[in-house]
Design a binder for these strands. Structure first.
Lengths: 203, 203
DNA sequence: TGTTTTTAATTGAACGTTCAATCAATAACA
DNA sequence: TGTTATTGATTGAACGTTCAATTAAAAACA
């Protein structure tokens, strides 16, 4: 009998090792050997559990996407929070402790660059990008007229991604992430305030 | 004697070829051979004019930074435009025809990813990031109080980078870039409008 | 002007290195 | 013992760099 449940364990161990390798050496210098050494296993194990290096990288990115999705779901378990709270929760999910980790940041950046010439990566990237927009749009629509909501959702999504990028590349990333989260929330509050006052003026 | 003043010409030809190679195959698949073939020269030429591949990549990124800077300067040749116009010009500079080109977008993305584990690239990246923020801050300060100006400048910089990133990765990049430019300008207008009405309420 | 000399630009084969993938051998387990 | 998990040496392709040889343009000369 094969060891029970060892396959998902090994796969997760190798994904963790991949994140560490990329955060330490960058994607370009991450090799089959560097990953397997961090995982404390041999180089052949990667082909055995993932078929090849490419599939392991893809699985690692999928893992990051799942983590991001889960960090949002964890926050909305409460019974339907009001829209403006929900918007803040979306922001928070994108600036989680985990999202800020060097493990994650370096991998996200490499992943974005890869998306430009790797169809499989581009597909994952597109799903994630649309998900953020859709989540924001859903909540904004309960507060603003459709066109304003669409604009606000696009602007917020861009601001989140932009702040995330600038923070990740900054020298004192941790402080920048904290400030970024606050400024994203401030933007959301201001948009809602402004649009509501605009609407009341028009009546 | 061989052709005089050919050095700057060849260097630019190789930089152009590097942009094309990265846009076609991605940075990972860009090799000395792929670049020199696009340039119509031999592989040895790169070491001769740049010392090595690394220096050529750095020169290519510097070229992109210069183009970005120049596209802004070209717009502000007029005698001191008013602050809100200047802010729009900054946005426009970041969404130039050239910035939208596949040649540039793929290289920028690879460059960001490289910055995380290449000190020379990180330095270039930091300069560029600060420059955008400083330019925005300068103009916002003429319209808003210092704290509001700093917040607005950070938010605008993030929104520009974020929109740029999302547009570059999008399937119909061209349309997205156009919409992005408009939404960045709209944000700037709204911030100014809102802060001014806030200030008048406080009096 | 026509010829020769000088000079640097350019080539591309060869070299050493690095990497992902493979697979026969071994270890761990049931 | 038989089955699966794991190892790690080996392979061959791909890469950046180097450099002796070649090419062609400019300079010097007559």
């Amino acid at each position: 009998m094969p060891k029970l449940g060892i396959k998902p364990l090994r796969r997760q161990q190798l994904i963790d090792a991949t994140l560490r390798s990329i955060s330490e050496r960058g994607l370009q210098n991450t090799t089959i050997v560097s990953i397997s050494r961090i995982a404390g296993m041999s180089s052949g194990i990667i082909s055995h559990y993932f078929g090849g290096k490419k599939e392991l990288i893809e699985a690692t990115v999928s893992y990051l996407l799942d983590q991001l999705q889960q960090s949002l779901l964890e926050r909305i378990t409460e019974e339907n929070p009001p829209s403006h709270i929900r918007l803040h929760l979306i922001v928070e999910a994108n600036f989680t402790e985990f999202q800020r980790s060097i493990l994650a940041t370096k991998t996200w950046l490499s992943f974005w660059a890869m998306s430009m010439h790797d169809p499989a990566m581009a597909r994952l990237q597109s799903i994630n990008s649309n998900r953020l927009y859709s989540n924001l749009l859903f909540s904004f629509k309960e507060l603003l007229d459709p066109e304003s909501a669409a604009n606000a959702a696009k602007q917020t999504a861009a601001m989140i991604d932009g702040f995330w990028l600038r923070s990740a590349l900054s020298e004192n990333a941790e402080q920048e992430f904290i400030a970024a989260e606050l400024l994203c929330k401030k933007f959301i509050n201001d948009v809602i305030k402004q649009e509501i006052s605009n609407a009341s003026n028009q009546i």
